[in-house]
Each structure stands twice: as C-alpha cells, then as structure tokens.
Design a protein around this nucleic acid. Structure first.
Lengths: 252, 252
DNA sequence: CGAGACTTTGACCGTAGTCAATTTATGTGG
DNA sequence: CCACATAAATTGACTACGGTCAAAGTCTCG
C-alpha cells in the first residue's frame, strides 16, 4: 500500500526541468552570461575533480551537488548540498576517507577564478566571499541538526533550509519546490537510515506538516515548522547578531 | 563502586597547570612574545565577545575554548574545541540560537589583527590562513563523527584528534595528555547524553583502549584505535590528497 | 565539615537501525 | 503498447543503541 509519494528521483530525471538558468536571479544571470564559455557540464552521479593539478574554487551554475565523505567501511556522510550560486573548493579526486564533490543531478559549474577575472570582478568577488561565509554558517546548522535534533526535526530543519535557499534563487513557487534527492541521499545527509527517513516522512505527512509528491515538496505553516524544528532562517540569524537597540523589547 | 576515573574537571582546576606558554611550539612562542601586550585574559566559563562593535578574529594563546550554540529549548551543541594556536571569529555576544565562544578553562587570547601587524606579519598571516583551513577541515570530521559514528567511535575519534592537536603543540607526553573537559561538555560535543558518555568511557577502559584519570587521558595502541574509530590524522589526509605516484602500492 | 559540581549506577523506555521481503516507479527493448 | 529489468520506496518484525529519571557516590574548595 503506497503511502503516496517519494522524496524524489535523481538520476533518471529529465535535465533542466527545474534549475535552468532562466530561473537564476538577476545578478547571477548577468554574471553567468558574461562567462558562459567557462561553464562546464557534469553528468548526474559524476565526481567533480580538479582538472590537472591543484585545487580550485568552483561556483555551481545549475543543478545540485553534494559534498561527501565515504568512510573506509562504506558508511557515507553528506556534509552539504550545493545549489546554484554556491561555492566550493575542489580537492583531489574523492578517495575514500576524503571529501569529494558529487553531482546529484546534471550540473553546470563555473570556475571561480574565471568569474572574478572580468570587469565585474570586484562585485562578483565580494559575492563569492559572502557565499563562502554562508556555506560555513550552514555547516554549523548541519552539526546542530545531526548532533542535537530528532529525526523529525532534522528532516524539517533541512527542508526549511532548502526552502529558503531555493526561494532566494527563485526556485520556490507557492510554498512548493523540487528536491531531486533520493531518500537515501537524504538519509546520508541527516545521519539516519533510509528506512527511518521513509517512516519519518510518512509521519510528517500524516501530521499535515508537509506534502511530498514525486520529488516536489510543499511545506505547510512554515513558521510553526520552523519553531518546531529549531530552524532559524539566515536573515533571522543576522538580525539577532545586530540588535540595533539593546533596550526597547518588542512583542513578537 | 567507582569505576575509577572521570574525564576531568574544569572550573576548579588550578590555572596554568597544563597549557602555559612554556609548552608552546617554537614559532608561536616568538610570535606571542612580540605581541605579549595584546594578550587578553578570559576566566573559565566566560564568553568571548567582541569588544565594542564589529566582529574580529582572535587566536587562542593558552587554554581551551569551545565554539557553541544553545538551542531555544536548552539543548546545547559544541561545534569545536579551540586549542592554543587556533583561530576563531568572534560574533556578537552569544544569544540563544547563535554561535558563541566560551572559555572552558582560563584562557589567553590575542587579536589576530594585532598579530599580523608586526614585522613577522607576513609569516604569521600565512600561519593563520592555514589555521583557518584546518579548522574547517575539523568541522567536517565533526560532522562525520556525530553523523555516522557510534558512541564508542565518536569518543575515540575525538580523543585521537585531540591527541594529534595537543601533540603538535607539545602537550602530549608518553601518549598521555590532559583533557580539562567535563563529561557533559564531551557529551554536548559528541551529540550524546552525559550518562552515555560515562558508560562509553567505562567500556573503553574495560576494553583496555584507554586510561582516564582525573582529566588525564592515555591512549593505548593508537593505530588500532584509529582504524577502529575511522580516524585519519590530518597528515594522513594530506598524503592521500597528494598521491605522488598513482601506481606502486605499499603494504601498510 | 558542608555545599556544589561531577561522576556513577540502576531501572526502564523509545528512537532509530537492521534485515528481508514487497510494492511502486521509471525505463528499455521488442 | 507491453513484458521485463532496475532503482527507489515501503512494510513488517525484531533488535539495540542511546536517552531519561532519579538516586547515590566522589571530589574540591571554602
């Protein structure tokens, strides 16, 4: 008896269904057009390794990438998901035990060095610095998720983060967005087993917190979910960091 | 019936017992002496906040610091431990929900900006850049620990990391080192409960993998432990990243 | 010696893992 | 358009790792 939906299917997915450049936010569009020639295509499932010798910094233009480590005994941990606009440093080809970048969908990436070279270099460069900062901040969120949240909280928390990030690049429509991830991938990111991810999703659905249909996710009552899952959007975090005035408490 | 040992006691510890500057590694000694006047003392348990306004980068000179986040419901997650020589960026005063630096022992810190200002600035600066890189690498290790390792593995893995880091700054003698941490702190770092940390330590002791006596830890057969706990020292990681020759496999 | 912080135990519970079988996509070739 | 192959999602049964609660026991320090 089907419980009515999966988290998604990656490999067989028709490309460009969801993350075409057309959806890219303004600034990035121009940025990318200018350096279109430097864009490199990576097929789903492939590793993103350095070309010849040393490491390099790349920017995701379209598609989903995961930052992963495989343990010697086969266990796998996904550190982060990289979406269009995100930055990452490519290490060596991902040996067991070291960190690697794996394309979860068909992906387009650009070399950061190339992007910062042009005339807009200054601005792009600043943008990349910020992307790096955000990435680190998300690593901390990830640690909290797997270190201190329950399965339900982890799933919700991650989905809420993905919502915000996808929303920022225009990939959310009516509280709904595509998550081209296998439940197994989800499990490896959240430090849970596939089976448990499956059951947790079912429970969340039964409780009406979200809807999942073939890789399309809808979050209901995001505010409630956020407080339930200890989720703080990045903008909220920024606000708390800079409480303009120490006094004057406000309701809500 | 006492099982014979605790992980350690922090607050009441006589200061300077273990991490005096005298133990500091060469390069750092000179670095610190030159800027001695810029050193700031933080008492155990205190927060390390920014002084007046903006964020700043600080270097730990002596003592242990934790990078922490407190969740709205009281749960706590420790992201990392900072030892002498480590770098961190100070955010705003640690509100609930945001990241904060907490001194676990009496601590001495220096302002990174001040350190890079002097004549040796160039060299120091490079050293700091590397420290930042190492710190990030350790965040990934932390994610693997709490995401994919069992309790026993987590404890060992963390102790092995601490061993290497303390060894690098001359704070290990005969496989033994001081860990001025409460079991509760350990628990919050490893995403476990205090009770379970306690029992796990006992188990590890019974199995002869380590010895703990009043905050002094000794690891037995580090190599075996390392393989058991999926631990890779940083130097090992670096080696795998740069396999000089692809061929020529070696035994061991 | 007493107070408070830490560690240790015991009893019991529950979340999440494992294993193995089944069902449901998603495709593919004929 | 259908039969078959494969990846992914679901289920059920059972296990176990780790959490919770509460009560000692220890250690330090004033």
């Amino acid at each position: 008896m089907s419980v009515s939906g999966s988290l998604g299917v990656v490999s067989r997915e028709r490309q460009s269904t969801f993350a075409g450049l057309s959806d890219f936010r303004q600034m990035d569009v121009s940025r990318v057009r200018t350096f279109w020639r430097t864009v490199e295509r990576i097929p789903a499932g492939a590793n993103i390794a350095e070309h010849d010798g040393r490491k390099r910094q790349v920017v995701v233009v379209s598609g989903w990438v995961s930052e992963t480590r495989i343990l010697p005994d086969g266990r796998r941990q996904i550190f982060a998901f990289l979406l269009p606009g995100d930055v990452a440093t490519v290490n060596a080809s991902s040996h067991v035990g070291s960190r690697g970048l794996v394309a979860l969908t068909n992906v387009e990436i650009a070399d950061a060095a190339a992007l910062t070279a042009g005339e807009q270099g200054e601005r792009v460069s600043a943008s990349l610095v910020d992307a790096v900062r955000q990435r680190e901040e998300r690593l901390f969120d990830q640690i909290v998720r797997i270190g201190r949240l329950t399965a339900k909280e982890r799933v919700l928390n991650l989905l809420l983060e993905l919502y915000d990030r996808l929303d920022a690049i225009g990939l959310v429509k009516e509280n709904t967005f595509r998550v081209p991830l296998t439940q197994e991938v989800f499990a490896d990111a959240l430090g849970l087993s596939v089976v448990h991810i499956n059951r947790t999703l079912q429970q969340l659905r039964r409780e009406g917190m979200l809807t999942v249909d073939r890789g399309t996710v809808t979050l209901h009552q995001r505010h409630k979910l956020a407080s339930f899952a200890c989720y703080q959007s990045e903008t909220q975090q920024a606000l708390e960091r800079q409480p303009r005035r120490a006094g004057g408490h406000q309701q809500d």
